[in-house]
């Protein structure tokens, strides 16, 4: 099925790239970017609003790191037998600490993120899921993160 894709002009693409790098926390955060693009703040705001309305960006605003507020996150994976896959997905997803869960093409075929208030809770929940399902939950905590953004040809 073909889906309609939003049409982005060159300026939209520059804006999309620039707003991923982040804006300063100042009274008029859009002014500097509008200036560097040679447009008025009003036009920049209209374009960002349109990118959001067309779902080119899912949101615009602060990105909070829950881990820095005392929370903990951990990517986890399990090797689930195909015939038990849906049942195990139901067991895993029932935990409110499971934030996302994806089926993936690998022997380790279920990948989910645990989000808890403390690092100890990560271990507790992972072990509880292992106990509940009889399938080892492997933990892949983030050791180092590299700057994240996604660029479109501008």
């Amino acid at each position: 099925m073909m889906r309609d894709q939003p049409i982005l002009d060159g300026l939209d693409r520059c804006i999309l790239n620039a707003i991923q790098d982040g804006l300063p926390i100042v009274a008029e955060p859009f002014a500097g970017l509008a200036d560097s693009l040679g447009i008025e703040v009003e036009e920049l705001l209209e374009r960002i609003a349109r990118l959001r309305a067309e779902r080119v960006i899912t949101r615009f605003g602060p990105f909070y790191d829950a881990a820095a507020m005392g929370g903990a996150f951990c990517l986890c994976a399990m090797e689930v037998p195909e015939e038990r896959f849906d049942a195990v997905a139901g067991q895993v997803n029932a935990w409110p600490e499971v934030a996302h869960n994806y089926a993936r093409t690998h022997r380790l075929n279920m990948w989910f993120v645990l989000a808890t208030e403390t690092p100890e809770d990560i271990v507790r929940v992972a072990e509880a899921i292992t106990g509940q399902t009889g399938i080892m939950v492997l933990r892949f905590p983030k050791l180092e993160e590299f700057f994240i953004r996604f660029r479109v040809a501008a």
Binding site: Q5, P6, L16, I19, Q20, D21, G22, L23, P24, I25, V26, A27, P29, I48, L51, R52, E54, R55, V56, I57, T58, R59, F60, G61, P62, F63, Y64, D65, A68, M69, F150, V152
Partner: peptide, 29 residues
């Protein structure tokens, strides 16, 4: 406004706010 700016600046300094930015939707692109 000044209090919001100051608190958010401190949160950014401490890593609670990573950045003020747009999140691209790869599927829409």
């Amino acid at each position: 406004e000044a209090e919001v700016l100051e608190r958010m600046a401190v949160m950014q300094e401490r890593g609670v706010i990573r950045r003020i930015a747009g999140a691209p939707n790869h599927y829409a692109l």
